[in-house]
Each structure stands twice: as C-alpha cells, then as structure tokens.
C-alpha cells in the first residue's frame, strides 16, 4: 500500500468517515514509520481536543460575581412590563400611516411657508411704495385712518377716492405692478 492512501485512510478514520481501519492499512502502519507517526499525531490531537471539550471551566467566587453584578446595576432601571406595554394606539401602529403623516406634514409646512413668504414680501413692497407717496396730497386725517385701519379696511375709502382721485390712480398702478 502506498503511503498517500494509508494517510488518506487514517484521516478518514479520524474524521469518522470510516468506521474502522482496514487490515491493509493497519499492516502498513506496522511497517511504515512516517505513517505511524501521522496516526499517533492524529490520535493525540483527538485526545487533546477531547480534553478541551470535556473541560468544565470553574467559576471561582460565584457569590462575589453575583454581588458585583447587583452592585453594578445601581440605578440602571429595567424597562418594566408596564412600560413595555405602552404602545401607540390603533392606526398609529401602522408604519406606512406614520410615514404618510410625516410626509403630509412636511408638504403642508412647505406650501404654507412659501405662501406666507409671498404675502410678507408683497406687504413689504407695498409699504415701501406707500412711504414714497408725498404726505401733502394725503390729508392728515386720511393718513391716520390709513395707518390705523390698513388699505383694505378703510371705511371712508369712497371719501378718499373722491378727494384724491389722482393719488388713488397712482396707488392702483403701483399695486397692480407688484
């Protein structure tokens, strides 16, 4: 028998792929030093691994470890059953619904935010234009009314229009341009 085949048989035997070594291999082992050494090495390796597997590590001072663990817990609070059961109710547990709600909130915020910006910008530009109108053509009383009520809520707007036709035309042209 060739050494390669003997080694292969020995490995298969230790890998539990063979139930036992065939007589031919056993005979070869008796006369071949190298194969015999391989067999012995595999046997020792198996014994060593078995020893490690069978070894039961011993925990010394187990009560000391328990005390250390309990002391280390300190104020660390466990999440109790009561806390565990607090869950969002009904439809709010649905992930898709929660994501949709978030998306809708972002879109609404963006839309209203932009609209607010447009309104504020328009008011700013209107105020700038309004400040450029000479006060002389605008009566003190009218001016006060204008200031306190704002353009849209001016009660005596018809009176103003009648007295200051030219001025209102100018205002209209300015607001239309904005």
């Amino acid at each position: 028998m060739k050494c390669e085949i003997a080694i292969q048989n020995i490995d298969q035997y230790f890998n539990k792929e063979l139930g036992e070594l065939d007589p031919e291999t056993t005979q070869h082992l008796a006369g071949c030093m190298d194969c015999n050494m391989h067999f012995m090495a595999r046997k020792k390796a198996k014994e060593l691994v078995t020893n490690i597997i069978d070894f039961e590590p011993v925990l010394n001072d187990s009560s000391g470890l328990t005390d250390d663990i309990m002391m280390a817990l300190g104020d660390a609070s466990a999440v109790t059953e009561t806390n565990k059961n607090i869950k969002p109710a009904g439809i709010f547990q649905n992930v898709f619904f929660r994501w949709s709600l978030s998306a809708a909130a972002i879109i609404l915020f963006a839309l209203f935010g932009f609209e607010q910006y447009l309104v504020l910008d328009k008011i700013n530009r209107l105020e700038t234009q309004y400040q450029n109108i000479p006060e002389a053509k605008f009566g003190r009383q009218d001016m006060n009314t204008f200031n306190s009520w704002g353009i849209r809520k001016l009660r005596n707007i018809n009176h103003l229009k009648a007295n200051n036709k030219e001025l209102f035309e100018k205002i209209n042209s300015v607001t239309n341009n904005i």
């Binding site: 309990m70 466990a78 059953e81």
Partner: peptide, 21 residues
C-alpha cells in the same frame, strides 16, 4: 419585568455559571 431586583438576583445565581462557561 416588573422591576424586581431580588428576582433578578435569583436569575443571576442560577445562570451565571452557564454564562461563564
């Protein structure tokens, strides 16, 4: 689960050896 530390101590005593191995 109700936050009982004494019960937890019992659990530690029972399983620390297994965990240690």
């Amino acid at each position: 689960q109700k936050g009982d530390k004494n019960a937890f101590r019992m659990l530690v005593e029972k399983y620390q050896q297994t965990a240690f191995r």
